[in-house]
Design a protein around this nucleic acid. Sequence first.
DNA 1: ATTTAACATCGTAATATTGCAATATTACAT
DNA 2: ATGTAATATTGCAATATTACGATGTTAAAT
Lengths: 107, 107
Amino acid sequence: MGASKLDIYSEDITTMAAMAKVFAHPARVAILQYISKQESCICNDIVDEIGLSQPTISQHLKVINDAGLLKGNFEGKSICYCLNVERFQEFQSQLNSFFNKTKSNCC
Amino acid sequence: MGASKLDIYSEDITTMAAMAKVFAHPARVAILQYISKQESCICNDIVDEIGLSQPTISQHLKVINDAGLLKGNFEGKSICYCLNVERFQEFQSQLNSFFNKTKSNCC
DNA sequence: ATTTAACATCGTAATATTGCAATATTACAT
DNA sequence: ATGTAATATTGCAATATTACGATGTTAAAT
């Protein structure tokens, strides 16, 4: 065996884990922080900022984007990424809800 | 290559990613939820509750414990785990601090 | 002292993730 | 139409994670 058994958990648990996974790599945390500091940005800027190759950054951006945390113009040469603050806020709320529920039920 | 480049990030970024990693697997989320519902608990209870083998649960518990999220008696036969609420709270605060800082710097 | 129950550790197989070079795609400029 | 700059995709190698069977360890019970 090896891979995660995904079918044995409730949906909110799976969602929680999926959300956490986005932040579970330092490159993605760094990318999010960097994006948030810019008016908008381009992948190549991030490549210069963080010490990873363009394909690697692109891959991490895909993970972040698939989680719904980016918005902007995704076509063509000069792409304009921006943090999807609403979605980001949603993440924060759900994480807090998990934390609050868990600790309040505790001994 | 393949593994994460860990030496190129600032400490707070690495810390953030490490914290998120604990919650980035549904088994660990489920374990934390289960532990929080009990007055105290024993590993084998968790094995019955979640559909994973005893060694696998034990491994996940180690990850959670290494993050400082457990407290209790860890010796011998009947181990009594409990959620370390203070540390858990600390996680929540740091996550919120990251979220608040990031979204407030955003366009 | 032996047995037993509860958990940890080891070894190993399967899968996932990370990273980059090479290549493809895209839109704009010429 | 061609060239170019910016990003995406592909393919692959290295490492990490996940999972479990087998075995070890520990403390309490007999």
